[in-house]
């Protein structure tokens, strides 16, 4: 039972992180296929605020405050009862609202699979593609040292 809830928690965590990095357009177009805005009641926000970002001394030691980042948070309730939350970097109230709506939609057993396929998967795929591009462009700047042999023995 415990592992089952841990599994669900991991799934929701992965989904919420995917909503946060999704393009606003992906979210708004997907929502157009999902639900009606009339089914959504705002509970809190969207509101803009800050999150204090932290580093670690030496990279792995005790934490220190690095500086803040702007964020937007939102909480919504679907007419079917699910409450969704979102906290995303940046100042885009509409995106935070959509992310919260999808967090709520993901909790509906009859919608979860569709949210996974239509939103979570494409968002993560887009991120992976961006990561690969960055990694490959960086890889091309790798220094391949070779040793010059000078003179003859």
């Amino acid at each position: 039972m415990e592992s089952e809830s841990a599994f669900a928690e991991e799934g929701r965590r992965r989904a919420m992180s995917a909503f946060a990095v999704a393009s606003p357009r992906l979210l708004s177009e997907a929502w157009g296929r999902f639900g009606d805005d009339a089914d959504v009641t705002p509970v809190r926000g969207p509101e803009i605020g800050l999150v204090m970002l932290r580093g670690r001394i030496g990279g792995g030691g005790g934490p220190f405050n690095l500086g803040e980042a702007s964020v937007t948070r939102a909480t919504v309730r679907l007419s079917s009862g699910e409450v969704g939350h979102a906290l995303v970097l940046g100042r885009d109230p509409q995106k935070a609202r959509l992310a919260a709506m999808f967090d709520a939609a993901w909790q509906r057993p009859d919608w979860r699979e569709r949210v996974e396929v239509e939103v979570v998967a494409p968002s993560l795929a887009a991120q992976e593609e961006a990561d690969r591009k960055l990694a490959e462009e960086t890889e091309a700047t790798r220094v391949d040292f070779f040793t010059m042999v000078r003179g003859e023995d």
């Binding site: 605020g49 999150v51 970002l53 932290r54 990279g59 934490p63 948070r73 906290l87 990561d131 700047t141």
Partner: peptide, 29 residues
């Protein structure tokens, strides 16, 4: 920034898992 509320503190950034764009060392070739 002084006009905004602080919602939370993030977990410390994990620079070990950084998506690297540049990485050099002057002590090891």
């Amino acid at each position: 920034r002084t006009t905004l509320p602080r919602f939370a503190a993030a977990r410390p950034l994990d620079t070990f898992r950084m998506r690297i764009e540049r990485r050099i060392s002057a002590v090891y070739k």
